[in-house]
Design a protein around this nucleic acid. Structure first.
Lengths: 170, 170
DNA sequence: TATTGTTATACTCTATAACTATA
DNA sequence: TATAGTTATAGAGTATAACAATA
């Protein structure tokens, strides 16, 4: 979480070849050249997501919600009766890892497991009244945070960015 | 790594409030509505980076390189003599976690630690001849992979995407 | 006194195998 | 036979504290 991009130094890269054995006086690096990595989509996407997530972590701490918790609660809020399996499919989570997560949210009285109407193996997930109240605030905070992070962009740029990101993972 | 976005269902969200106690017949969810999450920059950035990274993992497996290894070797390639501390600063890694990583790369004869010219505490990192050969191939593969992932975008869109991502984390 | 590299260690995240009850 | 939820557990990733050598 202490990322600090420091480009500059467009001097030549990949210089003479110091084989492990030839240990003559080697030059020191002043400014780290990250131009190659910065040309890669994966590197930039990861850096951007880390930047956003670090702000997310700060702002959601008062609610006691990690990004996963927020995502899960948000899906339950907008999809009352959603099953654990559906959560896994939508959020790329694995079933065993969701169990403890849901148990914690249930103990906090934010969600309730109710019998599924057509499948007695499954459980339908619902927000409790407390969960609904929390998520109203949390989603407002998320939208607000979004606005702040996106303040570095114009509204048009933000729309473009979201559209292009979706094209990448679609 | 089994992400599968499934939007659609723009019907109303957040319906009636089933408190934990009132357990009347609850509706089942057919199509999961992810529209709210999809409106968030962090969610989309993370999804996009996961998508790119999963392809990266496949293509770099033949070289025995994880994304971190590739990033480290790439920085060493373009910054001969870079120190462990500088790697940490540029890649948001923590010093204790870099030690084992570098040890492994050194055992594989891909890098060599050489005495730093001006600081006897530090070690300058350099690619060995084998490391240089590997990275020539690996960076070529990375650029190729980049082109494939970005095939979902026009060249202009890719340029725009990179520019906007940089603005987000800058 | 501060910093580089390092060890030891703990905590979180992610992944696999296997069980149960229903389908 | 296959699937939903669960348990137990292993492995990777990420974090903090503390020490020796050097600045």
């Amino acid at each position: 979480m202490n990322a600090s991009p420091t480009p500059t130094r467009s001097t030549r890269s990949t210089r003479s070849a110091p084989s492990a054995s030839s240990a003559q006086a080697q030059p020191a690096v002043e400014q780290v050249d990250t131009t190659f990595l910065e040309s890669l989509l994966g590197y930039n996407a990861r850096r951007a997501s880390l930047a956003v997530i670090s702000v997310f972590l700060e702002r959601m701490a008062p609610y006691g919600l990690r990004p996963v918790d927020f995502s899960v609660l948000s899906l339950v809020a907008h999809n009352p009766g959603i099953t654990s399996r559906q959560l896994c499919g939508s959020l790329a989570l694995l079933p065993p890892n969701v169990v403890g997560l849901l148990n914690t949210l249930e103990k906090r009285d934010l969600i309730a497991r109710q019998p599924h109407p057509r499948d007695r193996r499954a459980m339908g997930l619902h927000l409790t009244t407390a969960g609904q109240k929390l998520m109203r605030d949390a989603e407002r905070t998320a939208a607000q945070l979004e606005a702040e992070v996106a303040a570095k962009l114009t509204p048009a740029e933000l729309r473009t960015l979201l559209k292009l990101l979706k094209k990448v993972y679609a």
